[in-house]
Amino acid sequence: MEREEKIKAVKNKDKRYDGQFFVAVKSTKIVCCPSCSSRTPLEKNIVFFDTLEEALINGYRPCKRCKPEMI
């Protein structure tokens, strides 16, 4: 999946992508599901991970709003 498709999924808060990848925000060190209802981060601050474990290993914590660990 290309970065552009992932960015589009995040901007549209598309639930169909939940579990396919995770969105981490560099400025907050939080990892979310693509459909998270939180404010959409700036593209320059977005990092994508294939698994939640990858994001956690890289120092990100799960979002308290969308709870990606529950997927």
Score class of each variant (00 low, 15 high):
Glu43Pro: 03
Lys11Glu: 05
Gly59Thr: 11
Asn12Thr: 04
Tyr60Val: 05
Val23Ser: 02
Ile30Tyr: 00
Tyr17Trp: 15
Tyr17Val: 02
Leu52Thr: 07
Phe22Asn: 07
Cys36Met: 03
Glu53Thr: 15
Pro68His: 05
Gly59Cys: 10
Asp18Ile: 06
Asp14Val: 05
Lys44Gly: 02
Ser27Ala: 06
Cys33Thr: 06
Tyr60Thr: 01
Ile71Pro: 00
Ile7Phe: 08
Phe48Trp: 02
Arg61Gly: 00
Arg3Phe: 10
Lys29Leu: 09
Val10Ser: 12
Lys64Tyr: 11
Val10Trp: 01
Ser38Tyr: 03
Gly19Asp: 13
Asp18Lys: 06
Pro41Phe: 05
Ile57Tyr: 11
Ile71Val: 15
Glu54Val: 06
Glu54Gly: 12
Ala9Thr: 13
Phe49Lys: 04
Gly19Thr: 12
Thr51His: 12
Phe21Lys: 14
Met70Lys: 13
Thr51Ile: 13
Met70Pro: 00
Pro41Asp: 04
Glu5Ile: 09
Ile30Asp: 04
Thr51Asp: 09
Lys29Arg: 13
Phe22Cys: 07
Arg65Asp: 08
Lys29Gln: 11
Ala24Ser: 15
Val25Phe: 01
Asp50His: 10
Val47Met: 00
Lys29Cys: 02
Glu43Ser: 03
Ala24Cys: 15
Ile46Leu: 15
Lys13Cys: 04
Asp50Trp: 08
Glu2His: 05
Asn12Leu: 12
Met1Glu: 13
Phe21Glu: 10
Lys6Trp: 14
Lys29Val: 01
Arg65Thr: 08
Lys15Met: 07
Ser38Thr: 09
Thr40Met: 05
Ser35Trp: 00
Pro34Leu: 11
Ile7Thr: 01
Asn12Met: 12
Gly59Gln: 07
Tyr17Glu: 08
Arg39Gly: 07
Tyr17Gln: 06
Leu56Asn: 04
Val31His: 04
Pro68Asp: 12
Gln20Phe: 03
Cys66Tyr: 03
Met1Tyr: 07
Arg61Trp: 00
Asp18Ser: 13
Lys29His: 07
Leu42Gly: 02
Thr28Val: 07
Lys15Asp: 10
Leu52Phe: 07
Arg39Ser: 09
Thr51Leu: 08
